[in-house]
Amino acid sequence: MKALAARRHDRRAPALLLLLALLLVGGAYAVLVPSSADAATTKTATADDVATGEKLFQANCATCHGASASGTASAPSLIGVGAAAVDFQVGTGRMPMQSDGPQAPSKPVVFDDEQISQLAAYVASLGVGPAIPTEDMVDPSKGDPANGMALFRTNCAMCHNAVGAGGALSQGKFAPNLWETTPTHIYEAMLTGPQSMPVFNDANLTPEEKRNIIAFIDEQGEVSPGGLDLGSIGPVSEGLWAWVVGLGLLIGISVWIGAKSS
């Protein structure tokens, strides 16, 4: 406490406070802004955005995807993948890829939201492709979670686990956990089929059905009626805990009962 009190009188304190305030505002901005930016891109993408997007693309993506975005041996063509694919891949940090691996995992996002929307605008300008969904299309409160669960079970659970906790694919690839994924990104993933994931077009799962699935995922990974959810990964973790906690405690108590009192 004393040390803190002493520092308060330090003449560098105002500068420090200012810095903190700046960080706070910046952080708040980062947290609050994306939703509005998403909505904006779907409506209006100006020629300016496309031009800036192209510059960003040439600087960051062209090495792999080619200067005209028509793909190279190491990366697919982006013509016709649409703004949704860009928003998903770049918005979850999967692109730009950092290193070769079985698949590109989500990472801290490199670009800010404006840049992402500019990139998306540029790629969308190359060919017709799926657009970024509107707020309304991904609003979990407007979906039917029961129908969502039925669809999720048939179409998604085999890879992403029954409640979206994630699962293994072949050769080191995996289907990620969905609990932290934003509704927009879930929608875009279904629409564009990133990496190993197949596409679920609007005839296969209608926009309304996609929203139902989002409504189902939105309710997962939170409170489990039975207590701790143990990762929601099924009987293996239950068995592990039965041995560690159950047998562990019982054998511990047995040793205590069997030990001679001093």
């Binding site: 669809l151 048939t154 179409n155 089929g193 596409v199 679920f200 077009n201 005839a203 296969n204």
Partner: peptide, 21 residues
Amino acid sequence: ATDPQGRPIKASDVTIGDVWH
């Protein structure tokens, strides 16, 4: 037809990269 909805599937609706149950 699609599982579980039971909607008949048109060939034109099936695109490359899709999977239909």
